[in-house]
Design a protein around this nucleic acid. Structure first.
Ligand code: MG
Ligand code: MG
Ligand code: MG
Length: 739
DNA sequence: ATCCTCCCCTAC
DNA sequence: TAAGGTAGGGGAGGAT
């Protein structure tokens, strides 16, 4: 196919803006560069309000409520910690809105990634300048990038090609902050050096299989294999897909309205049942959750599958990771799901009954269970349940081209005049989408406004880590790092949603480990030697962690720091956590700008609760490992205020953090429990006598006695516990069992 | 020849 | 695969 000619590619779809049939197909893969980094750090408007200033920040005179501008005057290096989902939403919304201006069709991949078909837009440009030899797809991409930049102040990378697979590959070349048109005539040259897992849809396992069965993972070599060979090695469809992909062929169409096919809920952490009743309780609760999700999108299901993780016979009773599932065997079973009338259902009891029945069919000892998952499939739209047909009425009424991104569709066309970066102060409730549109959007399984935040939360570790790494390299030092390292500038904005993001940035294990693995989950064989867990107090001391900013945030950011340090250091090893402060950040940074930027002013905390104690007192330590960091912070907090009641603000902050941990998925529960337990231990150690004493304390006139302080702490504890329980109940129907 | 079920793989 | 969660698609082998 000539690159110059108008090759007739796969016929365009009927939906979306109607598009000429015989124009060259142009697909763009658009990907926000560093979405999370950008959304968080890039747009912190100077009018942003500071919700919570750290001690370090306060040392500069920065106060809560101050605008970021003011804060910057006091400390130009002040760093903010991103959090606002509103911002993420805003970014995403603008992202999609802009793309839709130019697209015939759009397939949302994620909150920061989309595929668009811009064939007609490019054709239009071309026909407007028939004599030009210009690459109009590039012209258009530049326009899009410019608009995106103008609207969000962020870069978007765009890969251009004739099909999806190639467009994705092109994006790799486009990054960062660029665009790349992978033309037909370049396909061979570009693909040749790539490996099979560079292709979208092919991963580690396929690569390994290819290596074993075909003796090659390189696309150039694989190109020499016959289609039959590929199919034999990888399966029919996969083989064929690969065969074509290598040659730059990909017939997939953009899908903007795929209906949801399943709804599920899996919980594989913290599962420890003592008896059947508990297991049953739990299963029914999960059923409620699934039911809720089904109702949320107005769907019902006719097939239920239950997935169970059971402790592997050889695995230790307790997983190496606190409340984790450890090495497990997994079991799966499915059965028809129906209500009393044999119809599709979303009723929690129906679902619970079926799930429980399946679980019982195995007859497992409940104490051995480590994970449970309920999946509902064969979904039907519960709104037109007229005849109980399986087909979904989608195209019939030709809804206006509801693009895959459900978020944008509402605010489309008319009101896209000004895409202003969201005002820094916008804080209100999350925009609520109008019900019908939202439901539809949910049904077609696209990132909807309401799901956006979740998507942000669930975003992949690798994804984000990579963004941070890239960003880190781009700027010699990032504000985030700055915030952690030169602690003078911890400014925490309201909310703590970053937590979920940064939390996922935990360092990967040593790099140079044997690639060889045994079974499911390789056994963790790092017991006491787990130096990685051991953070030196000196390290923390240097970090000047204060109980105010408290919260894990700094600590998690510290992890980011570690990651980047390792990354930069290349062979970096370091099994033990090093105080990255100097070698990683300070050094390179000063190399870069010796003096211009003020040396990180050593913030002197007003009354820093010293982290001078080594570890916990023996015996009392609850069995955590991973949560050590948090524990230390709490410990510092409690001890720092040994003589004073806790600040209500701190309590609120703490509370908010924990509640959010509970609300946002499961990973948080572990930490929540661990944190609460540790707090409990500390309080008992110090004020055990007052635990049950709930008598009121005359706040006004009373000396601050130890008793008063103790009571105040216990009161705070009960308050937090209460609020966390509410959150836990809302989500799981139970409360935290701390003892 | 299809359809199911139970995995497995991939991506986000 | 540190470990966690949601969804979609495909392969193998048995069921229909
Ligand atoms: Mg991205
Ligand atoms: Mg992405
Ligand atoms: Mg891949």
């Amino acid at each position: 196919m000539k690159s110059a000619g108008f090759v007739l590619k796969s016929p365009s779809r009927a939906k979306g803006k109607q598009k000429a049939e015989d124009v060259e197909r142009v697909i763009m893969h658009c990907d926000f560069d560093c979405f999370f980094v950008s959304a968080g750090l890039g747009g912190a408007a100077s009018t942003s309000e500071i919700a919570s200033a750290s001690y370090e920040a306060r040392a500069f005179g920065i106060k809560n409520g101050m605008s970021l501008r003011q804060a910057r005057q006091l400390c130009p290096e002040v760093a903010t910690i991103p959090y606002e989902f509103e911002r993420y939403k805003s970014f995403s919304l603008q992202f999609y809105t802009i793309l839709m201006r130019h697209a015939d069709d759009l397939q949302a991949v994620s909150v920061d990634e989309a595929l668009i078909d811009v064939s007609s837009a490019v054709a239009r440009l071309k026909s407007a300048s028939p004599l030009s030899a210009e690459d109009f797809s590039v012209t258009l991409a530049q326009t899009i990038r410019a608009q995106m930049k103008q609207a969000t102040e962020c870069e978007v990378s765009i890969g251009i090609a004739e099909n999806i697979q190639l467009a994705r590959l092109a994006t790799r070349r486009a990054k960062p902050a660029g665009l790349f048109h992978l033309k037909d005539e370049d396909v061979r040259r570009v693909l040749e050096p790539l490996d099979i897992d560079d292709l979208h849809g092919f991963g580690h396992s396929t690569r390994q299989k290819a290596n074993e069965k075909l003796g090659a993972t390189n696309l150039g070599e694989l190109m020499t294999r016959s289609k039959a060979q590929l199919c034999e090695a990888l399966g029919k469809t996969t083989g064929e897909t690969l065969y074509k992909a290598i040659r730059g062929i990909d017939d997939r169409k953009l899908e903007s309205d795929k209906p949801r096919k399943s709804v599920s809920c899996d919980i594989n952490y913290g599962i420890r049942f003592e008896n059947n009743e508990q297991a049953k309780e739990f299963v029914y609760r999960m059923a409620e959750e699934v039911a809720r999700r089904l109702d949320g999108i107005s769907m019902r299901g006719r097939l239920l599958s239950l997935k169970v993780l059971k402790r592997h016979p050889n695995a230790p009773k307790e997983a190496p990771k606190f409340m984790g599932h450890g090495l497990c065997e997994s079991f799966n079973k499915q059965m028809a799901l129906a209500n009393a009338h044999g119809q599709a259902t979303s009723d929690s009891k129906d679902i619970g009954d079926h799930a429980w029945r399946l679980l019982n069919s195995w007859g497992f000892d409940p104490a051995e269970l480590r994970g449970v998952g309920i999946h509902i499939q064969k979904l039907e739209d519960s709104r037109n349940r007229d005849v109980g047909q399986v087909k979904l009425p989608f195209q019939a009424t030709d809804r206006k081209p509801v693009p895959k991104g459900s978020a944008p569709p509402r605010r489309e066309i008319d009101d896209i005049p000004e895409l202003v970066v969201q005002p820094a102060s916008s804080q209100g409730e999350p925009t609520t989408a109008d019900a019908p549109a939202q439901k539809y959007a949910d049904q077609v399984g696209l990132p909807s406004l309401s799901q956006l935040d979740m998507e942000v939360l669930e975003a992949l570790p690798d994804d984000i880590r990579k963004e941070l790494e890239d960003e880190y390299q781009r700027r010699s030092h990032s504000p985030m790092v700055e915030a952690v390292i030169t602690s003078p500038s911890k400014v925490v904005a309201k909310g703590l949603n970053v937590k979920r993001i940064t939390q996922q940035l935990a360092p990967k294990s040593g790099s140079s480990l044997s690639p060889k693995k045994s079974v499911l989950f390789a056994k963790r064989d790092t017991p006491a030697s787990a130096s990685a867990v051991r953070t030196s107090d000196a390290e923390l001391r240097e970090l000047d962690i204060d109980p105010d900013v408290f919260v894990v945030l700094p600590l998690e950011m510290q992890r980011e720091q570690l990651i980047m340090a390792r990354h930069t250091k290349k062979g970096g090893v370091l099994t033990e956590r090093r105080l990255v402060i100097k070698d990683t950040t300070r050094a390179p940074r000063e190399r870069k700008s010796p003096h211009p930027t003020k040396p990180p002013p050593k913030a002197h905390r007003p009354r820093p609760p010293m982290l001078n104690r080594q570890g916990k007192q023996k015996g009392e330590k609850v069995s955590f490992t991973e949560t050590d960091d948090v524990q230390r912070v709490i410990e510092a907090w409690v001890e720092g205020f040994e003589k004073h009641p806790p600040n209500q603000k701190d309590v609120n902050f703490f509370c908010k953090f924990l509640v959010q941990s509970v609300e946002f998925s499961d990973a948080g529960m572990e930490k929540t429990i661990a944190v609460m337990r540790w707090w409990l231990v500390l309080l008992r150690r110090r004020w055990g006598a007052h635990e049950e004493d709930q008598s009121e304390v005359d706040q006004a006139a009373q000396r601050v006695t130890s008793e008063v302080v103790g009571k105040a702490w216990w009161k705070a504890f009960r308050e937090v516990k209460g609020r966390v329980d509410v959150a836990a109940r809302k989500r799981f129907g139970g409360t935290l069992a701390l003892t």
